[in-house]
Design a protein around this nucleic acid. Sequence first.
RNA 1: CGGGGUGUGGCGCAGUCCGGUAGCGCGCAUGCUUUGGGAGCAUGAUGUCGGAGGUUCAAAUCCUCUCACCCCGACCA
Length: 574
Amino acid sequence: MRWSKTYIPTLRQNQSDAELISHQLLLRGGYIRKLASGVYLYLPLMQRVISKFSQIVREEMNRAGALEVTMSVLCPAELWQRTGRYISAGKEQMRMKDRHDHEMVLCGTHEESVTSLISGEVKSYRQLPLNLYQIQVKFRDEIRPRFGLMRGREFIMKDAYTFDADEESFARSYQAMVDAYFAIFKRAGLDVIKVESDTGTMGGKAAHEFMFLVDTNAGEETIMISDDGSYAANAEKAEFRDLADVQIDAELQDMETVDTPGAATIEEVTAFLKVDATRLVKTLLYMADDKPMAAMVRGDRDVNEIKLKNALGCVDLEMATPEQILRYTGAPVGFTGPVGLEDMTIIVDPLVGELRNFVVGANENEKHILNTNVHRDFKPSQVTDITLAVEGDGSPVGNGRLLAKSGIEVGNTFMLGTKYSEALGATFLDASGEEKPIIMGSYGVGITRTPQAVLEKYHDDKGIIWPVSMAPYLVALIPLNMEKEEHVTVAEKTYAALRETGIEVLYDDRTERAGVKFNDADLVGLPIRITIGDKSLKEGCVELKARSEPGVELIPADDIIPAVEKMAQRLKQQ
RNA sequence: CGGGGUGUGGCGCAGUCCGGUAGCGCGCAUGCUUUGGGAGCAUGAUGUCGGAGGUUCAAAUCCUCUCACCCCGACCA
């Protein structure tokens, strides 16, 4: 492609609102432009990157036996109502009405569509297993879009769906996708780790995320990894072993209400009563689907709201406002306790459950109760893990300690079970003639966010350094002076030769000065650069340079093709 | 949804406090010179000052409303 015939609007200055280096590079390099908050347009270079990555994904999916289809971005709302997600997807779902006033949704994922596609057609175990995938636009009306392609409202995703007759078969289907994912990200130049994650609105039994670890502020998610490598989960999901030195009394003592003037926070109460935070229990009031409930964690700990939400099985979970706290407990913020909160759900963390004689709020201004005990003094509705794991906690498996890392989610896999097949009547007859719901899985890869994630790693202060597998073109061909006939003659000849060999080349035929061309080439980041200028032409040579390496090779103009091929081969190995 | 901020030529910004009819850099166009790391000189084009309403002799500037975009938060008793 000739630079003069394509559209690569590079920018000299940074767009002020681009936070991440990868986002800035895409903007400055002429890869993307923003149309609206969280909505981006892909320019010719980006389109080629998307094609490259899509092709990698296709090859690995096809290799794993998946079949490509395309499902509409639109879906009748009715299907989402039947699975219950019309409500649970909440405000994130883009909705609209057609001219007949029929409710439609713009899909953020396609479980409903794909399940409806196969239900009614797939009726026998002989037709299973089945794996359908597509590469499609998705819409999610994010609360706060940010980080460019990383968290947009519209994005492209590869989503696959497996259908199996039994758990054993499903386990094979799931593993095949996990294997495919590692292969995909490896080819894209990313080292990823697989972590356990929450299933969110997707539902189902279990899920994993494929995370690319970063040191920068680009991480959109915290993940907890055991230092012995035995465990990895995102922070929402992470379980842990508590290593705190907690003193458990032998005898239960009698409750005692004491004045704690001016002591509302954990720090103030521990200082005032001169007790350790592990002897205190926080009682947090939440509104779960508009009903008040109390969550209790040890004083030195914080609530993991995702765990809490899962324990409650609610859709909406919000902390109660000070006014609500006053209304439901009779005391201002800071003095909530479980004693006397009879008519609301109380969820107690196991770390609280094992304590004896702990301190809680008295539901009275500036008063706390000493020597409170679970069961004796109040009845928990449920004792279950609702505590947020933090760095330094023990790994839930083995003897390791958890480390907090920042990561970018580039893929995910969900064990959906039969949630969608049951809701939408996707059933089959097994070998014994029994009707059963199909066991499903769903698997996503971020087609637009992954290239941006790649850039968080592959860049320097001059611009992008694409891995060969993801680059929009392999070679940047740069004649330094378009007014010199010799430069142009050699460049045109080299351009023709490269194209004949099938090498993807971007030929900078603009009548720009050398500095402009060099800077644009560095910014755009093609893996290999061929420079044609007086210095080397004197010796009948052109210059060959890898974007990722400092050195320059002089190659006789007629031998350039094999030299490029050799360099490409070498770069691919890295 | 709460808080903060920003909207001025294609891009990046100044001007707003203290009202007087819009400016800088880059880019763009033309010409000459220059030509291996974002050229120089000359000439030139491009602005409903986000939108609506109001105050005033006069509004980018003051007031009211509104829209868009960005950042932070929506986190602990």
